[in-house]
Write a protein that binds this DNA or RNA. Structure first.
Lengths: 231, 231
DNA sequence: TCAAAAGTGTTATAGTTACACCCATGA
DNA sequence: TCATGGGTGTAACTATAACACTTTTGA
């Protein structure tokens, strides 16, 4: 025990931060939540929501803490994506950062704090980001594109009740590609995770679509089996 | 610039290590390379190959360094998998570790150093591991199972020239499931990344199989397009 | 009555699964 | 000549892709 402590004390130590890439969906666009950087050096640039990791805090908790502190929400989807370690990525010296992705429903969350000009930016057009945050955003976006095709993450970005058009718009925005409407519907109905609420869209200047909910419970009970080699 | 440095100096600092999960394939089994732990506390337990991250070293380089130091190889497949941060994962105090997966061809690498009883262990049966290394191994194994179905990583574990039986044994071992031989062959021939060397197995007590090479160049030129929602 | 999006089905193609026999080799 | 694994094809099934018209609503 003593030698373990001694060994650890001999290690170089590095400051650790977490950066949350918080995706949202609004106006048929994938958005990401950013603030103005705290640093004078980056005062005109946009920054991911980050903070250093507290002592004795597991990094997942740090990420939830950042979310809570910045947005007031904590019941959201959150997953570790990748650790970034370029020695010069922070102008103040070496800082290692662990990127987390979070997806949150813009409608269900009016931002309470607007410190540092916190607001949503279009993922496709954002530039001028602080640190290596653009690289982090790009990796998280690629991660999201892949993940959303394997897991039903997308529903975290939508209102609880949504139309199939909204769902398809979300997929088209994230994957940046048009899809066939009939095949899209067929696919999702075949999965059988959509609950027909019996409700319809309102206030739309055209025939209202049915509203559905995602059946998280049924999905949780089902085990996805991986199969098929494909590359 | 000054305020940036000041800010960073105010952060808590954490020792960082990398741990390499080095997979190999031998005797139709997936193996992992382990050593006896350095720590007295874990003297009967097996440990992944790790080391602390040097100052000003990007973590990918730390992982390559660990590989080189422990095995003498550096032209191998290596990828970051996940960062582990439980505050009590190391008995000497908080240590954060970044897990990397490496795949290396056992035949092409006779271990030069055998310090700390370095040797290959069967992934399926290993237990009694130091720290949280069993958890790390499990996550890396799950990662490998998924990855190998999407990318041709497996070839890094085989001799340069291999028979289709060896290739199938590898997939069956990693995915832990039997596959149909005819369909397996059809699949790989259809991909068209196998080069027929014109050579045959030798010293086998049955009809010798053809030996193939993987066409890394052709694969590199091809871009995989992701398509299809599936969960 | 018009504009706009909802809703719906079929056909062709590609991929996946399941399955059995003959062949080449060394012992 | 035997044991062992190599090598091969087909048929049923499932998933995917392409494609156009009618319906409902609000303005």
């Amino acid at each position: 025990m003593k030698d373990a402590r001694k060994l650890v004390e001999s290690y170089p130590r590095v400051p650790i931060t977490v950066d949350c890439v918080i995706f949202g969906f609004d106006e048929n666009e994938l958005k990401v939540l950013l603030i103005r950087s705290d640093l004078e050096l980056f005062k005109d640039k946009w920054s991911l929501l980050g903070d250093f990791a507290d002592d004795n805090e597991i990094l997942d908790d740090s990420a939830y803490r950042v979310l809570r502190e910045r947005t007031g929400m904590d019941d959201v989807y959150l997953e570790q994506v990748k650790t970034f370690s370029k020695p010069n990525r922070h102008p103040g010296g070496r800082v290692l950062t662990v990127a987390y992705c979070s997806l949150l429903n813009i409608e269900h969350h009016q931002l309470k704090k607007m410190d540092n000009e916190l607001h949503w930016h279009s993922v496709k057009t954002i530039k001028d980001m602080a640190f290596d945050h653009h690289e982090i955003l790009n990796e998280c976006y690629a991660w999201l594109q892949k993940r959303i095709q394997e897991h039903p993450l997308g529903f975290n970005l939508l209102p609880e009740k949504f139309s199939l058009r909204e769902l398809q718009n979300l997929y088209e925005a994230i994957l940046d590609r048009k899809m066939d409407r009939r095949n899209f519907r067929k696919k999702f109905f075949a999965m059988d995770f959509l609950i027909d609420t019996g409700l319809y869209e309102d206030d739309v200047p055209h025939r209202p679509g049915k509203l559905y909910q995602f059946d998280f419970k049924k999905y949780g009970d089902t085990k996805k089996k991986w199969s098929g080699i494909d590359f």
